[in-house]
Design a protein around this nucleic acid. Structure first.
Length: 290
DNA sequence: TGAACGTTAAACTTTACTTCA
DNA sequence: CCTGAAGTAAAGTTTAACGTT
């Protein structure tokens, strides 16, 4: 279980400048800068058209998938499966029967393992059948480490799957397409949750810094007021010496004896960090006219 | 050793949206 | 243009599996 957490490969560290990968985020990577709105989230795919390249991958994506298939083929040889892998015909028939649609009546029923499958336990090879107990309680399987690893790798490539990719992945892993689909849905949800946590942390830090800045400014105002009201203030002031006018800017130049002005440190402004430039860049890509 | 409890993740449901015939 | 079917993602919920006490 803890291993599964590590599998996410997610970090909540808040190294803001180091987070400048927003333009090309890996789906597996939690962006360490907050989203400006939901539309900038890499997971808000709701309003994308199905023709969008990440939903229906381009030829290069397909190429990547093919490369990935070759790379993982040997790795998958040792994979434990939860059931006997479906044949190609079975898998396709399953897919065509509407398994991939969570909305359809068929898929809602078919999604319940108890009504469809006789499984092979990944650990001890024990056959699991829901006919054993006869009720409709769903039996949940735990994906093997290898299966999870492959799914993670695939998720890195693309966080959504088109039907062909789903089918291929399911076939490769010995899972049903619906299982692969569910895994990707849950995986996207987990990543989004992590991103929300990061956003939350970031805003918390912003709030803390602004509070601190406010406190410091209040103190400064208080001190200046006290100084102004003090009669000694005027007594201690050095008498004005010769004033000279700067010929270029036509301003009164400060006396040479005066202490150099000490500027207070610039307040922490997370939006002016390099990372914020990334946000701006991203906004400009979302709105090219801007 | 087993019960109680908390956490995680697989599976499911609902809703909203797009596409297409 | 309208309509319904089909497909899918997101959000939320349920529940089995597992770890800890």
């Amino acid at each position: 279980m803890m291993a599964a957490k590590e599998d996410l490969g997610l970090s909540l560290s808040l190294n803001f400048p180091a987070a400048v990968e927003r333009n090309h985020p890996s789906p597996l990577q939690v962006n360490l800068m907050p989203r400006l709105d939901s539309s900038s989230s890499s997971f808000n795919l709701r309003h994308r058209t199905p023709n969008c390249s990440d939903s229906y991958p381009s030829s290069s994506d397909r190429h990547n998938a093919d490369v990935f298939r070759v790379e993982t083929r040997s790795f998958l040889k040792g994979i434990d499966v939860n059931r006997m892998p479906p044949t190609a015909a079975e898998a396709e028939a399953e897919e065509e029967a509407g398994v991939s649609s969570p909305n359809s009546t068929i898929s809602s029923i078919s999604g319940k393992r108890s009504e469809r499958d006789v499984l092979v336990n990944e650990n001890d090879g024990e056959r699991i059948s829901d006919d054993d107990d006869g009720d409709n309680s769903r039996k949940k399987l735990r994906l093997s480490k290898d299966q999870s690893a492959v799914l993670e790798e695939s998720f890195k490539e693309h966080n959504t799957l088109n039907p062909k990719q789903k089918l291929a992945l399911a076939k490769r892993l010995g899972l049903r397409p619906r299982q692969v689909e569910v895994w990707f849905q849950n995986r996207r949800a987990r990543t989004k949750l992590k991103q929300t946590e990061v956003d939350c942390e970031f805003l918390k830090r912003c709030c803390e810094n602004l509070t601190e800045e406010n406190r410091r400014l209040q103190k400064e105002v208080h001190e200046l007021r006290a100084l102004k009201l003090s009669p000694q203030f005027y007594m201690q002031m050095a008498p004005p010496t010769t004033l000279t006018i700067c010929p270029s800017c036509e301003r009164v130049a400060a006396p040479s004896t005066e202490k150099p002005v000490t500027h207070r440190p610039a307040p922490f402004n997370p939006w002016s960090t390099p990372a914020s430039q990334v946000v701006h860049r991203q906004m400009s890509t979302l709105n090219p006219q801007a």
